[in-house]
Design a protein around this nucleic acid. Structure first.
Lengths: 165, 165
DNA sequence: GCCTTGACTGTTATGATATAACGTTAGATA
DNA sequence: TATCTAACGTTATATCATAACAGTCAAGGC
């Protein structure tokens, strides 16, 4: 699974609009200040790497890039930065892919659901308000105190549906 | 994470009622016949192991038990049996725990959601009809052709809420 | 400004999870 | 029974993740 590479070909509209990247980095800075945590160089660079990536990146993919730029070369370097970003709502962990992706709308406390394309491995954040509401209801019914949830859908993205048809 | 052991203490009502185990095994046999697949000894035993377990088991936990009973000793033995069960709707993979659990209601094509207790690691299947409906709607809205989904909630089960209060 | 303190970084080492590939065995079926 | 394919068990290796520790740096008290 080393290659989550979707490097070639066209890019989905929602990702890596350059303006957007800058906006998110600014927001990350602001949030760090708010929360009294530090968006250090590795952390910031890790976020940039995720933002520039098409689709989700594995921790070792991120590590490779960080190492190439003079940051540490060992797994904990990547995992720590990634965990920081996840804890601070700047990135998400995609469990099905053992991978991470930048949060597309870090401004909302949005408890995202993810749409993972089986064909091109792209990951899209979906509006998950209704899904989470339904899940809350199901949890309530079971007497379960819900804290957080992983919601990951697998299927075909719009582009790949066309390609397969 | 080798020890998902919740061996001691009381048992949740939904699991390992012995009668229930037999019923599920019978159903598994029937389904195998239906589908023209074989519920071989390893596969059957693997299902039993999952049914007898409290909570989810890691592949290596299952392997250990299988090996002790004279089945193969290497990881693929467990993974193949577990994947067979998952593919045939007799077990579920819990990604957050890197673990597997027997399906509690294999008779329904129920696309389950899971409620994972942070305190005791118990895993409960929840009614997920509404959740899946909401997810389908969100996928539709994004032009995404949904095939299947992972829905895993983390929080506190009823018993552990009491214990923590 | 200087020192203390705690957070952060990078490292070594190891643990945990998962699969590829191949030869052998056993079931189905013609 | 001969043949074919699915399943099994193995070796080997890939992949993902964290524990523990030493050195470094930034922020706040003095």
């Amino acid at each position: 699974m080393t290659e989550h590479a979707r490097q070639g070909g066209f890019c989905c509209a929602s990702h890596s609009g350059t303006a957007n990247v800058q906006a998110i980095l600014d927001l990350a800075e602001a949030r760090a200040k708010d929360r009294r945590v530090r968006l250090t160089p590795v952390r910031r660079r890790t976020l940039e790497i995720l933002l520039q990536a098409h689709g989700a990146l594995g921790a070792y993919d991120v590590l490779e890039r960080l190492a190439a730029e003079g940051f540490g070369t060992q797994p904990p370097v990547a995992y720590r930065a990634l965990n920081f970003l996840v804890e601070n709502g700047l990135a998400h962990r995609i469990r099905r892919l053992n991978a991470f992706t930048a949060c597309a709308q870090p401004s909302e406390d949005h408890r995202a659901a993810f749409l993972i394309c089986e064909s091109c491995d792209s990951v899209t954040e979906a509006q998950a308000g209704a899904v989470n509401a339904a899940l809350s209801a199901a949890a309530d019914a079971a007497g379960f105190a819900l804290d957080r949830a992983t919601i990951e859908a697998v299927g075909l993205c719009r582009a790949c549906q066309g390609a397969q048809a």
